[in-house]
């Protein structure tokens, strides 16, 4: 699974063990209300399943300045 973290679009690759959005957020040290999780233009809630060939965008919501 490929994960792109905005705003820098930093790419990280994850292997098999991350099975849900919540698991992914935990791995990134984010609470579910700290980022949007997007797959194919769709927002995902924390309970959604993830698959090995997914491309996921993480958009943190905290605004600065």
């Amino acid at each position: 699974m490929k994960v792109f973290i905005e705003p820098e679009n930093k790419e990280i690759k994850l292997t098999g063990k991350t099975k849900t959005v919540l698991g992914l957020l935990n791995k990134l040290n984010l609470r579910p209300t700290q980022a949007l999780v997007i797959r194919n233009g769709q927002l995902l809630t924390p309970d959604r399943r993830l698959y090995p060939d997914d491309n996921i965008i993480i958009r943190p919501v905290i605004s600065r300045g």
Partner: peptide, 25 residues
């Protein structure tokens, strides 16, 4: 903040990420 971010996404509002260079967070 999470709720306004979701609104922007769902409505298709593009917004700025570039933080001000003087922002100290």
């Amino acid at each position: 903040e999470f709720e306004t971010a979701n609104l922007c996404y769902l409505v298709g509002i593009e917004y700025g990420f570039a933080p001000c260079p003087y922002s100290t967070g």
